[in-house]
Write a protein that binds this DNA or RNA. Structure first.
Ligand SMILES: [Mn+2]
Ligand SMILES: [Mn+2]
Ligand SMILES: [Mn+2]
Ligand SMILES: [Mn+2]
Lengths: 222, 222
DNA sequence: TTTAAAATTTAGACAAATCTAAAAAATGAC
DNA sequence: GTCATTTTTTAGATTTGTCTAAATTTTAAA
């Protein structure tokens, strides 16, 4: 019922790597955690013994139902602290992740539920990622990758699915953040780059960047 | 410059035990940390090597100047989080200590300074203990142990110097908290017990309890 | 001043988490 | 299908923090 910081970091990393039920490999996890394959195997045995994993040696692993539950509670903590750091302490969205990496391991349930309440039960974190509620449920949203936003229809940025320093630096430079209103003006099939209108400015972004930006778009709006 | 959770717990415990420059013994520290004397000796060697301690084998130890600085920063974190938990999340003063025990180990300086600012630079925590500022300075206050409060002069409880669950339970029962206004009505030399007037009620407290309650008293007030 | 008791340190062991290097298993090119 | 390459696991070591039991040092009583 109570896991070490190291165990929690592994569980969370597996959750993110496996996405919608894919199997995770030893090397991929080692890479993600900046550790060695041998260390991963050791930890997989341990998490397996604790029934958090479906693990078949040599063939990778996925989280068990219990493992997913644990992961969602870690992610809940992480994203609530990110929201707190951003909204209450005024940190930029590229700073909050590192700090939340530490705070997420303080795992008292009542503390987290009170924090949630204090923050007004935010459904999304500063990067637009959903915050699991106290039961581990995640709000869904009709997201659209920027590449599928119809031309000349206003969309609002609601999520960025890569939060590397490099990505966030680029977004900042282009004045794109959560809540930014924009329209696609041009799409160049040669390299899939896009020209956007943002606050009366024309901004060009690459395919790689566009792939990581999601928008909401009200089809019934004018 | 960066210390493990275990090291931090030892440093803080030494700080509290040594008070105003007393020497701390191996057994006292083991007791305080619910560990064994042998473990303490091991850690003392380590902290000594890091120049955080003045350590003479068999004769106890005190924190070095650097060690005190580290201790004050840990205590700053602890008390700021206690204040946050109490004021923002609505926890009772007997609950905040345990939670702060974990949060105190998240040691990013900018985070703590921003938290301090967010909270309005509180000088005292929910138990009335002073919160070191970002330079490690502690506000002083003309405190008076309740036993020295002149009879029939109003005092305001500003600090309780024992925060055991037992003590806080008793205080709650007697409706005494930080900010409580009271007057000493009677003092019984036989057992040093006191009769207090609190909001028109007469309350009796023991010597042990009185010793841990400190009040402010304005000599110039009427 | 001797000696028994108490306090402290040392010795040796163990669990957790990590690493490097070697062995074993799976995979894919031929 | 064989075999070299890649991936994964195992073996053995290391660091941190802890423990018990034994040895050492201090202390305080007789
Ligand atoms: Mn983490
Ligand atoms: Mn996030
Ligand atoms: Mn602690
Ligand atoms: Mn306190």
């Amino acid at each position: 019922m109570n896991y070490s910081i190291s165990e929690e970091n592994y569980i969370k990393a597996i959750y993110h790597l496996q996405g919608e039920s894919g199997t995770v490999t030893t090397n991929a996890l080692a890479e993600k955690l900046s550790t060695k394959a041998a260390s991963v195997t050791d930890m997989m045995k341990k998490l397996s013994a604790k029934k958090l994993l479906n693990y078949k040696p040599y063939y990778g692993f996925t989280l068990s139902t219990e493992g997913k539950k644990v992961a969602l509670f870690i992610i809940r903590r992480h994203r609530l602290w990110e929201f707190f750091l951003s909204q209450k302490l005024g940190f930029d969205w590229e700073e909050v992740h590192q700090l939340a990496e530490e705070l997420e391991h303080v795992s008292n349930k009542v503390l987290i539920d009170r924090l949630d309440e204090f923050l007004g039960f935010p459904p999304f974190d500063p990067h637009g990622d959903p915050i699991p509620d106290s039961k581990g449920r995640i709000a869904s949203r009709n997201n659209l990758p920027l590449s599928l936003l119809p031309k000349n229809k206003p969309g609002i940025v609601c999520q960025v699915t890569n939060q590397s320093a490099e990505m966030l630096e680029l977004l900042k430079h282009k004045s794109i953040g959560i809540g930014t209103k924009l329209e696609v003006r041009k799409h160049f099939p040669f390299d899939q780059s896009l020209e956007l209108k943002i606050k009366k400015q024309i901004v060009t972004i690459s395919e790689q960047l566009a792939k990581n930006i999601f928008v909401t778009y009200d089809e019934n709006a004018n």
